[in-house]
Design a protein around this nucleic acid. Sequence first.
DNA 1: GACGATATCTGACTAAAGTCAGACATATGC
DNA 2: GCATATGTCTGACTTTAGTCAGATATCGTC
Lengths: 290, 290
Amino acid sequence: MLDPVSRVRRFNRAVTSAVGALDTSFLGRGRPLGAARVLNAIGHSRADVGEIRDYLGLDSGLMSRLLRSLEDEGLIETTAHADDARRRIANLTPAGKREFNAYEAISNRQAKDFLSHHTQREALLAAMDLIASALGRDGTALTEMDPRSDEARYCLGEYYAELARRFKQGFDVKLSRDPDAKDMVRPRGSFIVAMSDGLPIGCVGLKGSSSEFAEIKRLWVAPAARGLGLGRRLMDAAENAACELGIAVLRLDTNSALAEAGQLYRRTGWSEIPRFNDDPYPDLFFEKHL
Amino acid sequence: MLDPVSRVRRFNRAVTSAVGALDTSFLGRGRPLGAARVLNAIGHSRADVGEIRDYLGLDSGLMSRLLRSLEDEGLIETTAHADDARRRIANLTPAGKREFNAYEAISNRQAKDFLSHHTQREALLAAMDLIASALGRDGTALTEMDPRSDEARYCLGEYYAELARRFKQGFDVKLSRDPDAKDMVRPRGSFIVAMSDGLPIGCVGLKGSSSEFAEIKRLWVAPAARGLGLGRRLMDAAENAACELGIAVLRLDTNSALAEAGQLYRRTGWSEIPRFNDDPYPDLFFEKHL
DNA sequence: GACGATATCTGACTAAAGTCAGACATATGC
DNA sequence: GCATATGTCTGACTTTAGTCAGATATCGTC
C-alpha cells in the first residue's frame, strides 16, 4: 500500500492535475497555450528563435507561425542576428512586456497562494527544492563565471554560512586564506557555478598560484541538490579546467567535519597528504596528479 | 534570487517538463492521450461515467466519443446503472484489462527508474509525499469506514508505531484500553479515514459508550500530511458524526508528548478536565459540549 | 563564386481536443 | 400523468497542435 513506486505515482498524479490547473489559468488571456509559452520564453530573455524552439520542443513550422501570431498582435519584434543573418532574434515590444508581466503576475500569485495556504512553508519549500533539483538534474548546467558575479557571490555566501554552522568554533572568512578573485579567473584559474533553471545551486573554484600546484577551493552544493552527484560533476569540471590550463598537480584542504566532501575526494582518486598550509580551519589535505 | 515564490516557480517548471515527458510516453500505445486517460480512470475502478468526466474535466460530448472509441476497440463495455438507467457504468473487458496493465507497467517503470537514479531515495519520497499531500489537499476525502478495514488497520498500525517512538516508556496497545471495534461503528460510534488519491493518510475514531459521554480516539495524521489542517478536518468530521448520533458530550485523553494534538484541541473549543480513566499512557484530558 | 549546410518561413495537410445545440431516455416531484 | 430536471449521446462545428515537403536566404569553405 505504501511501496515506493506507488508513492512516486501518487506524487505524479497530484502534480499532473496541479500542472493542468496552472496551464488553464494561462488561457484567461485569450491566447492559446503555445503562443503564451513562446511569449514567456522570450520574456525570460531567451531571444534566439532556435534556442526557444529547442527549449519548447517545437517544430520549426509551428514555431514560425507562433512567432508570426505574436508579431501580428504587436507583442514582439524579430530582427536578424547581428553575426548570422539566418538566425532571428525575438524581443518584446512595450505592449509585449506588459502582456508578459501579466503572465508573470498570474504565476507569482499562484505560487504565493499555494504558500499562503500551508503552514509548513519551509518544509514545503525544501521539499520542492529537492524535487526540482532531482527532476532538473539533466538541466543543470555548469558554467564558468567570474567569482565576483552575483551568482558566484550568492554561492560563496551560502558556503561561508554553512561553514559557520558546521564548525564548532564558527567560521570567519577573514581568518582563512581567502583566495583573491583574480586567482580564480582564466588564465590563472577558474570558477564554475552550477545553474539549475536560473538558480545557482553549487560552485567550485580552481585557484591558480605561482607554486607548482593549483588548489581546489569553495566546493559547495546547495542542500536541496545533494545526493544527486552534483559535487562530483563540479569536481570533474574543475579538473577539466585544470587540464586545459596545463596544471599537473591539484591540492585542496578540507575539514573532517565535512564528511561527504572527504568521501567524495577519496573516491575520485585524491590521496591524503600532510598539511601544506597554515590555514586555521582545515585539518585534512589532499592531492591529485592529473 | 531565492525568494519563496521563485522557488515554487522553479519547482513548477521542473515538474511541468517532467509531466510532459510522462504524457508523451503514453502515446506509444497508439492511442491519443484523451482515450488513454479515460481507460486509466476506468482501470482505477472509476466506473461511473459522470464521475470520470468530472475527474478528467471533460465535456460530455467529448467524453461520450472517447468512450465510444474505447468500446469500438473492444477495451470497455458500458451498461446502465442499476438504480438509475440514465447513468452509465463503464468496465474493462479482458482485452481492456490487458491494455490497462500495459499502461500501468509504463507508469511503474518510470517511477522505478526515477527512484533508481537517485541516492537520496528516502528524502525524495518524503518530499514527494509532503507535496502530494499539500497539492492534493482538496482531493483528500474523509470517508467513514469500518475500523477493521485494511485502510483503517494500516492507519492504526502507523499510529501505534508513532506512539511507541514518541513515548519514552514505549507503547503497548494491550496496556491501553483498546476500544472494541464495535464501539467505533454506527450506531454506537464511527471511524473516519482520510484518503488521498487512494492512500490512507489519517484517521480518527468516535467511540460510543453506555456512559453519558462518547470519546474521540486514535487521531492520527501521516507525517507527510501534517501542517495542512487535516487534523482539524478529521476532528470536525468526528464531531459532526457525534452530532448525527445525538451525542452531547465528547471526551478524549492524550499525552503531553503529543504537543500538536494538545494545541489543536485547545484551539477548537475543548477544555481541559481532570483525569477520567486509569489508562497508563495519557496525562491530559479534554471535554467538549456539542 | 559555386556548393553544401543551416535557419527560418510558407503552404497544404492531419489529428486531437474542445464547443455547442439539440435529441433522447430516464428520473423526480407535484 | 405531466412538467421539469438530469445524464448521455449525436452531429456539426472551431481551434489548437503538430507534420512534412519544399522555398528562400544566408553562412562557411573550398
